[in-house]
Design a protein around this nucleic acid. Structure first.
Length: 437
RNA sequence: GGAGGGAUGGCUGAGUGGUCUAAAGCGACGGUUUGCUAAACCGUUUUACGGGUAACACCGUAACGGGGGUUCGAAUCCCCCUCCCUCCUCCA
């Protein structure tokens, strides 16, 4: 959520920044200003009335104490009318606030000044490139072919169980998935200073609202129903990312200055309905309804925000470096950024079988946008309450990392070579071609 | 799922319709005293919104788990909900 004071004091700036997203959100600024003004006018009126009612009520109490019942009764009649007006005004204040809130919750964050202007993904600048696409002496197979030959994923049975977009990992595939999760968690907790947390995979709607998933992306979430109670639907949702529970861990708290910076690493499966997404009907692991991910979350002071974002990206890049993968880092332009973010780096890893880059990490500084939504603050050394910056980054997303890994390290004989850092986890140096069954 | 008990400031905990302007204690912070530490004494102690100010000050309103109701007036009475605790039931 944006700062209402900023909109009030500098609407032109807010309009200008929102317009860079090319989402048409700047048109809402006037609505906000009108509702805000109306709300404040109503507040002044109703608060004056309440002040006078409080005074008279106190007088009545005093009169009752002195047994001047007739006078007390007279005052009661007088005040009753004030009470009725207060009730009406309170109602319009509540309505105005609700309307204001509804608009505010749908307004995206303002892009940071260093973000490139642009309207589509084609305009995202490449920040840096690591390694290069490996040359193959043979035609590299796609991950689908590799998975089938090495029996890593049973696509047909995954679909039989849950429909398209769901994967059944088998044999070495299941082990590789588990090894990667453990490798990622160990890397970030042991070498990058993150504290591991294991969050619920179902969260309340307030958490979804806190990180900015709701109300805008309600159509992308899996809602949960409790037993036969249809009224329970809409209360709980499968997490689309561990960001939803983890960023909300300290919601509605006032953190001590000494607690910052907070750095959490969490594994979770991610559930995405992907309503309206194209290409989901096709086989493969690139775009699925459920995938694993290790997420990194930071809660830091505004002064540290952007420095910590750079470190966050580096932490995620380290994963790909250790696994010997070619990737590049891009900076999402204003028109391609996520709803809650002020600045986002995407890391795209090279998948030779696909002959394309795959997004495996998205690292964002949401500044105080989420903190304001979830009412998370910290106390400065001077004793003032301030909103911290909240950052999130994938460290990294698994299904696509799995794809890049097996496509990159596939061998002429059909086996997949396992990079050194992963060998202790998988307890093998290669995934062998199964002997004919 | 059933029965009962709870939810008050940073913490403990009083308060059952009107100076509640929420007692008291603990903690924390500031000050006085002090060779140092401790103790004692004095003082301060939340949040949000609005008004106001150059900025402070200051003023108002709201908040005793959340929402609604009764009343001139609600921490206090009534209704609904959430969460916690104890017991029963069920369950990996």
């Amino acid at each position: 959520m944006l700062d209402i004071k900023l909109i009030r004091e500098n609407p032109a700036y807010v309009r200008e920044r929102l317009a860079t997203r090319h989402g048409g959100d700047e048109a809402q600024v006037d609505t906000v200003l009108q509702l805000d003004e109306k709300r404040r006018a109503l507040l002044v009126e109703v608060e004056q009335l309440k002040a006078s009612r409080n005074r008279v009520s106190k007088d009545i109490g005093a009169l009752m104490g002195q047994k001047k019942l007739a006078e007390a009764e007279a005052k009661k009649t007088e005040t009753r009318e004030i009470g009725d007006r207060i009730t009406l005004l309170d109602k319009s204040v509540a309505e105005t606030e609700a309307a204001l809130n509804a608009v505010m919750l749908r307004m995206p964050n303002l892009p940071h000044s260093t973000v490139a202007l642009g309207s589509t993904a084609a305009e995202n600048p490449v920040i840096r490139v690591h390694g290069e696409a490996s040359a193959f002496a043979f035609k590299p197979k796609t991950h689908i072919e590799i998975c089938e030959q090495l029996q890593l994923v049973d696509f047909a049975r995954g679909t039989k169980l849950s429909g398209s977009g769901f994967l059944l990992y088998t044999n070495w595939g299941a082990k590789l998935e588990r090894a990667l999760i453990q490798f990622l968690l160990d890397l970030h907790t042991e070498q990058h200073g993150y504290t591991e947390v294991a969050p619920p995979y179902i969260v309340g709607r307030h958490c979804m609202e806190g990180v900015g998933q709701f109300p805008k992306f309600l159509d992308q979430a899996y809602a949960v129903q409790e037993g036969l109670d249809t009224s329970s639907i809409g209360q709980l949702y499968l997490v689309p990312t561990a960001e939803a529970p983890v960023a909300n861990i300290h919601r509605e708290e006032i953190l001590k200055f000494s607690q910052l910076p907070i750095r959490y690493a969490a594994y979770s499966p991610c559930f995405r309905a992907e309503a309206g997404a194209a290409g989901l009907g096709t086989r493969g692991m690139i775009r699925v309804h459920q995938f694993d991910k290790v997420e990194l979350i930071k809660i830091v002071t505004p002064e540290q925000g952007y420095e910590e974002l750079e470190k966050l990206v580096n932490n995620a890049e380290r994963v790909l470096q250790l696994l010997g993968l070619h990737y590049h880092v891009i900076n999402l332009c204003t028109g391609d950024m996520g709803f809650a973010s002020a600045k986002t780096y995407d890391i795209e890893v090279w998948a030779p079988g696909q002959n394309q880059y795959l997004e495996v990490s998205s690292c964002s500084n949401c500044e105080d946008f989420q903190a304001r939504r979830m009412s998370l603050r910290y106390k400065t050394e001077e004793g003032d309450n301030r909103l911290p910056h909240i950052l999130n980054g994938s460290g990294t997303a698994l299904a696509r990392l799995f794809v890049a890994l097996i496509e990159t390290h596939q061998q002429a004989d059909g086996s997949v070579l396992i990079p050194d850092p992963l060998r202790p986890y998988l307890k093998t140096d290669r995934i062998p071609v199964p002997t004919a069954a």
